[in-house]
Design a protein around this nucleic acid. Structure first.
Length: 272
DNA sequence: AATCGTTCCTGATAGC
DNA sequence: TGCTATCAGGAACGAT
């Protein structure tokens, strides 16, 4: 499940590999991945150059020449892989970009098929982003964060995962940050003490930065464009550790469902 | 404003 | 062994 750290790693890696390259060919093998008319998509993408690559929340944005942007969301199992054209194709590879004067390809692979890409005019980008996501977790201050938590009466875990409020956190890092800040995932945002809110803010920043540094978490499908794995899964404190001992106090890690998402926590360290 | 159920899809897992 | 049933998971959507 690519979250902010995984997407950041992908973006940094793609900058090294495809920035300034010209797309010479596009093969669409599964049309539903593309949220445009196929002919429009191919017409605009073909022969454009990749002039910039950015991340906002979990979105990847490829800025193309001709004033278009390609917005990509990997959802649960989407992968962007940079591979030689000789690399074997499988049935999960839904789209292939080829580049001028290159034998390498950028492939979009997605087992679950939930991810998508959409080509939009550059002038539409801000509207697109603001209608889907709030400010990125790496761009907000402790004060911004506290203000929102206090103004809402929401279960903290579901607030953290709501991309329209702040963007980039997913189940893994929200779970880990709550553990680090010793906050129960079902705590109500408006009643969390100021000191704890500050602690949570720094826990989120800390978890995200460390995960970026370790190349993200390869738990299920995540791979970097060069097919290497991340290493953050090796340092997880609570995620997917139900029934195991808390690394801080030794209690058994519990699991609750919040919005149909499993949430792991230590019943001793994270009291309601 | 917040929450809940449903949907998309398929590999993994459980149960028989 | 091989079958079927169930479930996870990000976010949009409609309903409450």
């Amino acid at each position: 499940m690519p979250e902010l750290p995984e997407v950041e790693n992908i973006v940094v890696d793609l900058r090294k590999r495809i920035l300034a390259k010209k797309i010479s060919k596009v093969h669409i093998r599964l049309s539903k991945i593309i949220k445009n008319k196929k002919s429009f998509f191919i017409n605009k993408v073909k022969d454009s150059k990749i002039v910039d690559i950015q991340r906002q929340g979990k979105f990847i944005i490829l800025y193309l020449s001709k004033d278009y942007c390609l917005v990509i969301h990997l959802k649960i199992s989407g992968q962007l892989l940079y591979l030689p054209s000789s690399h074997p194709l499988d049935k999960y590879t839904h789209l292939i970009f080829e580049f001028k004067n290159s034998n390498d390809q950028l492939r979009y692979r997605d087992v679950r098929q939930f991810g998508y890409m959409k080509l939009i005019n550059r002038s539409e980008l801000d509207d697109f982003l603001s209608s889907h996501i709030g400010p990125d977790y790496l761009s907000i201050s402790s004060q911004d964060f506290a203000k929102v938590l206090k103004s809402r009466k929401r279960i903290i875990k579901s607030l953290l995962l709501d991309q329209k409020i702040f963007s980039g956190l997913g189940n893994i890092y929200a779970t880990e940050a709550l553990f680090q800040a010793k906050i129960h995932p079902k705590a109500i945002s408006s009643v969390i003490k100021d000191v704890k809110i500050k602690k949570l803010y720094y826990a989120i920043q800390n978890v995200l930065r460390k995960a970026i540094h370790l190349g993200g978490s390869s738990i299920n499908d995540y791979l970097r464009p060069d097919t290497s794995k991340g290493r953050y899964q090796q340092v997880l404190k609570v995620y997917q550790r139900k029934g195991k001992r808390c690394r801080r106090c030794g209690a058994r890690i519990s699991n609750v469902k919040i919005n149909n998402r499993s949430s792991y926590f230590c019943p001793e360290c994270q009291r309601l």
